[in-house]
Nucleic acid binder design. Structure first.
Length: 751
DNA sequence: TAACTCACTTAGTAGAACTCTA
DNA sequence: TAGAGTTCTACTAAGTGAGTTA
């Protein structure tokens, strides 16, 4: 694909243009003391098993190259390049997408009720903390009005009209939990058919019951002992509680890691009495095995509970859910996502996190900030306690917040993805990505031009943007050193994260990426790039140490400011959403064939989904049972083949018999054998498709892209077009999250 | 303008819940 | 019906990006 990005030789600029490079370097260069980074990387490499991963990545790359820009946009580059100057005159200012000016892409919305570009500008949301100027309203579609607008269709006004989660049945009674589960197709609130708030207001009325706190610590029975240096030792309640956190994790790899052990021990000692502190000085001498056994036994006992006991627990959970799991937001009952406060425990930071093992302390009511309406019934703190604060901020979506003690970050209780507040935002996200589709050609042309800029900062920005666009890299915010695992994104890439090959494996200008991204997931990719990008990278790396920033004059803030100028609401992450969705759409078109049956079509869908997951580097550890389950499946396939051969033999016999007898009965027998063969063939095919799908999915997680990057309307449209039940693509939770898309997208929807 | 704060989305995983099969 | 295998959900860490402060 890089071929169509090529430029003529005369456009290659010599390095002399950048003589100021080093002068500025120190100014912009951040201090990196990643002494351990290389070691960590090596460790990570060996952990992942290089050869396997290489194969995976090579395939990944091939797939990527195949699928990239299937929308045909790059084909337009050459022609557009010739007309660039002409175009620039026309579009000399910014690329703020005014619909009347956009005629490059004709992308009509094929929706029942979606007003064109209803989410015209995320700036509408951006101004949440400032008062908007009246001028801002000029760009808003007329359809969007405030609730105060008398002509606007109001949000459902009656509290009794709550039907988001539970609605009245035909008799006008509220169904119980079980009936509700069976009667899924109840009338739902179609918030997407109503007007949205403006001015950053998220709600007008909010009432909830507050959070559910973690249950208090229950001391261990006296027969479960902790041993120090081989001798039993009775611990104080506080020390014992923290000890149990460690004991519960004894089977986990975490407890073998030095950093985890060190952090745990340090924090544990803080909870000890002076006497305990004086005695317990070495973690190696601590024996938690009896505690560990006790918890294991408890788990087993839970599993072995009778049906009745299990039902009792289920009912209790349901009661808590009904009491605390919902709120009233603007006259609608909405499900809360996480109404339980995180229990105390040991921090499980991912990758080589410097704080892993630290004690996550217990959250008390005095730590909690409640957010609700002034005119609502405030949640009650537990008896004898008080909230830290009760506030009434309707410019935010959270209900409860607290500050955690590990990183000092704020944690929130928010609404479920099926709620209006989350759904609107999700819909808006895809609309922004669709607006990018309309001007992505121009943006690509621009960053290609910028590769030639006389200014280093512009070149860096342009190359970074190219990576973000081409490889779906994350933006890469700067991180506080020593506070988190050493991971990077595009803007924070360091010299040591890439290798340049003028020629390798029969390809020219290849860049090899090898770094740890979000969640310390390794990103490894070998990509041929355009010559100009390659030359620029050589330049950026000149006179730098491995741990220097590759883009020393760029950060996400600079990049996003630039993107904002190119398109209203454009940020680095919009490219990921755009490229994921456009890839899915293109792949579905390419892979789905009319004559296939439903299982084969679903395989095609999963393959399209997989292409996106590969693009976004959504990896997973292969399931522990993978090999075994594949083996089982293969056994089933073999048995089915055997069964098919037998059925075919029987059919042959029946045919021969019918030839001789020539009576009705034998004819019927032939028909029935034919049907049997057909049925077994179908079953075999289904099994084979399942095996292929599972094998291809070994290391790829499809869920993340499905939930976060793929415009659900593409999937809904595909289902409608090919008569695939939506349940085959989205499970119940996903259907709830994407209810808006399921309702509005028709079979001819185009992203 | 760098550092910090805040609000939100995106992410992988553990274990619960469900389904299938012998 | 047990238990093995699979799917779903809850959980919470780790990102992004806008706004604020010094």
């Amino acid at each position: 694909m890089s071929g169509d990005h090529s430029h003529s030789e005369d456009q290659v600029i010599t390095t002399s243009v950048f003589s100021d490079s080093q002068k500025h370097k120190d100014k912009f260069k951040k201090e990196h003391k990643h002494k351990d980074h290389k070691k960590e990387k090596e460790r990570e490499k060996s952990k992942h098993g290089n050869s396997d991963h290489k194969d995976f990545s090579d395939k990944k790359h091939k797939d990527k190259e195949k699928m990239k820009h299937k929308d045909g946009s790059t084909d337009k580059y050459k022609d557009k390049y010739k007309e660039k100057r002409k175009e620039e005159k026309i579009k000399s200012f910014d690329c703020k997408v005014k619909l009347e000016k956009e005629n490059g892409f004709d992308s009509p919305l094929h929706l029942k009720s979606e007003p064109e570009n209803i989410f015209h500008s995320p700036k509408n949301d951006k101004s949440l903390k400032r008062e908007r100027d009246d001028d801002d309203y000029e760009i808003k579609p007329k359809k969007i009005k405030t609730e105060n607008d008398k002509k606007a269709k109001k949000r459902k006004p009656q509290v009794e009209d709550i039907k988001t989660v539970k609605t009245k049945n035909k008799k006008g009674e509220m169904p119980d939990g079980k009936k509700k589960a069976k009667k899924e197709p109840e009338e739902k609130w179609k918030w997407w058919e109503e007007e949205r708030y403006t001015d950053g207001v998220k709600w007008k009325f909010l009432e909830h019951k507050g959070p559910v706190f973690a249950p208090p610590y229950e001391p261990l029975p006296s027969n479960v002992r902790f041993y120090y240096d081989g001798k039993p030792m009775v611990l104080s309640a506080d020390a014992e509680e923290v000890a149990t956190f460690f004991a519960k994790m004894l089977d986990h790899e975490y407890t073998t890691k030095d950093v985890f052990r060190k952090n745990f021990f340090k924090d544990w000692r803080k909870e000890m009495t002076p006497e305990e502190k004086a005695k317990i000085t070495d973690l190696k001498k601590c024996d938690f095995s009896e505690m560990h056994q006790y918890f294991k036994a408890q788990t087993e006992a839970r599993k072995a509970m009778t049906k009745e006991e299990k039902l009792k627990i289920k009912e209790e959970n349901e009661r808590i859910l009904q009491q605390f799991g919902f709120c009233i937001m603007d006259n609608h009952k909405e499900r809360i996502a996480n109404f339980r406060i995180e229990p105390p425990g040991l921090f499980r930071g991912r990758g080589d996190h410097p704080k892993m093992g630290m004690l996550k302390r217990r959250i008390r009511p005095e730590d909690i900030i409640i957010n609700c309406s002034k005119d609502s019934k405030y949640p009650e703190p537990p008896p004898g306690t008080r909230w830290k604060e009760v506030r009434h901020d309707n410019k935010v979506t959270w209900l409860v917040s607290w500050t955690e003690n590990i990183q000092g970050s704020i944690k929130y209780i928010m609404l479920n993805p099926s709620s209006r507040i989350k759904g609107e935002k999700d819909w808006q996200k895809y609309e922004t990505a669709r607006r990018l589709k309309k001007c992505v050609d121009r943006i690509r042309n621009q960053y290609r031009e910028d590769w030639k800029s006389k200014e280093m900062r512009i070149r860096q920005r342009a190359v970074a943007l190219y990576f973000i666009d081409k490889l779906a890299l994350r933006a890469g915010n700067e991180k506080e050193e020593g506070e988190t695992a050493d991971t990077v994104g595009c803007c924070s890439l360091r010299v040591e994260h890439i290798k340049l090959y003028p020629e390798i494996d029969g390809q020219e200008y290849v860049v090899e990426f090898d770094f740890l991204g979000k969640d310390s997931i390794r990103y490894y990719n070998k990509v041929p790039v355009e010559k100009r990008v390659f030359k620029n990278l050589q330049l950026f790396m000149e006179n730098k140490e491995p741990d220097d920033d590759l883009f020393d004059r760029l950060n996400t803030s600079i990049l996003n400011k630039h993107l904002q100028e190119l398109m209203d609401g454009l940020t680095a992450k919009v490219f990921r959403t755009y490229n994921a969705s456009i890839t899915l759409q293109a792949q579905l078109k390419e892979l789905t064939s009319e004559e296939e049956n439903i299982p084969a079509k679903i395989l095609s869908y999963n393959r399209a989904n997989r292409a996106v997951a590969i693009l976004c580097n959504h990896q997973r550890a292969p399931p522990k049972t993978f090999e075994k389950s594949m083996q089982n499946l293969q056994t089933k396939i073999d048995a089915k083949k055997e069964q098919l051969s037998a059925a075919k033999r029987e059919l042959k016999g029946a045919k021969a018999d019918a030839k001789v007898r020539k009576d009705e009965k034998s004819k019927k027998a032939v028909e029935s054998k034919k049907k049997a063969v057909q049925r077994i063939e179908d079953q075999l095919m289904k099994l084979e498709v399942q095996a292929t799908d599972r094998e291809e999915n070994k290391q790829i997680a499809l869920g993340t892209s499905k939930l976060n990057y793929l415009d659900p309307r593409i999937s809904v449209a595909w289902c409608k077009k090919w008569g695939i039940p939506i349940e085959k693509i989205y499970n119940k939770t996903q259907r709830e999250k994407f209810a808006w898309a399921i309702d509005m997208a028709e079979k001819d929807y185009e992203f």
